[in-house]
Write a protein that binds this DNA or RNA. Structure first.
Lengths: 208, 208
DNA sequence: TAACCCATGTAAACGGTTACATGATTCG
DNA sequence: CGAATCATGTAACCGTTTACATGGGTTA
């Protein structure tokens, strides 16, 4: 029951239509809480019934009308109440981790290929976040109070992606050399401390 | 539709009853795929219908009978097939991140308190994983082929927890000093490179 | 003219969570 | 004697996903 709160946060930042929200959930907020438009429209309808948001219809000429939502006072109260309650610990659910664990019961090479694909996905996402960060927060000393939470969340994204990327690399080192028994020399993995440079594709690794 | 696969992996490792699986999902596998016993029993029933697992009843004297599940050949095929298909990218869904982002619309101090609580949770989980790692894999050079996937997943857990812990610390630095405008001096956060030592509670920080 | 964007929805199915239920055994 | 453990389940609810539906406007 918390798409509700994600919507309240997004609408508190700026009023929007269901369609606008859908696009926001394709980027930005959506990197930390995904939702499809069907779900957004339905929850929005419920929230309107409950008085958490209010709608105003803007006639569009030619194109369909836009139903623009704003947070009501009741919605603002609910938002404040929600920030005060402790966030329940997130239930981890990683099909990927389960698959790695079960790789010896299937096709190990296919799983390694999967790790490689993931690795590149994380590298791409990391590059995206870092570009975003450099662009929007060039001067870390000048962070306004309003910017700080946004910046903090972005930093979380960066850390998560970097962590996943490094994990994938560690696994590739662990699995790609099945013959030779060189142990992982440094399990703490100090690579990519400066991640800008070496974040290209890793597919043709060690073959060239 | 993938608790199924988690159960197949777990049963491929060792046959078990629903109750056994429930306990496994409270630890070990459960750190990467959580499930309650109700769900496990239901999916197990369906999988039995579909012929992916087979049941054998062991009469318990006094206590209830144990229904012990094993993976069938069909189940093993399904497991192999599953490892071959690319894992869909995980939909991130972090209520915590959303709350941090929306903190300025609520009670910032309460959210900071929440971050502190999380930080300690991650420190605890990290310590648990690292003890587990040190105990089960004391000699990284002697990792058997069967151990490697298990080890890899555990390493993922360690990396994730450490990453979250460091992120929380970064946020506390960012938010705990609202008056003074000292910027986060090193946003890359090189602390806790050797995480054994400084992973105590952080609650009384800067007050003593 | 075909494909895509704008903009909104309905309906069905699936998966996960919470609450309820049973009953014997063992431990403090 | 009460609580926890062993061991299994049912039922209702809620949130998410996927498929289907509509219809005008813009762009290649």
């Amino acid at each position: 029951m918390s798409l509700q709160h994600a919507l309240l946060v997004s609408l508190a930042e700026c009023e929007a239509s269901g369609y606008d929200l859908t696009r926001r959930f394709d980027r930005s907020l959506g990197f930390f809480w995904s939702a499809t438009h069907q779900q957004i429209y339905r929850v929005l309808a419920r929230m309107t019934d409950e008085g958490l948001v209010a709608v105003r219809t803007e006639a569009g000429q030619g194109r369909p009308d836009r139903r623009v939502y704003t947070v009501t006072e009741l919605g603002r109260d609910e938002l404040a109440r929600w920030t005060q309650e402790p966030t329940p610990s997130e239930t981890v659910r990683s099909e990927f981790a389960v698959k790695v664990r079960g790789m010896r019961f299937g096709d190990p090479d296919a799983v390694i290929e999967d790790i490689r694909r993931r690795r590149d996905d994380h590298a791409r996402q990391l590059a995206y976040y870092e570009a975003n960060c450099a662009k929007n927060y060039p001067d870390l000393g000048a962070l306004s109070a309003d910017d700080r939470p946004l910046f903090a969340v972005l930093r979380g994204g960066i850390r998560t992606e970097r962590s996943m990327l490094e994990w994938c690399d560690e696994m590739l080192d662990l699995f790609e050399s099945p013959g030779d028994d060189t142990p992982p020399t440094d399990a703490t993995g100090a690579r990519y401390e400066t991640p800008e440079a070496p974040v290209a594709s890793r597919t043709p690794r060690r073959t060239a």
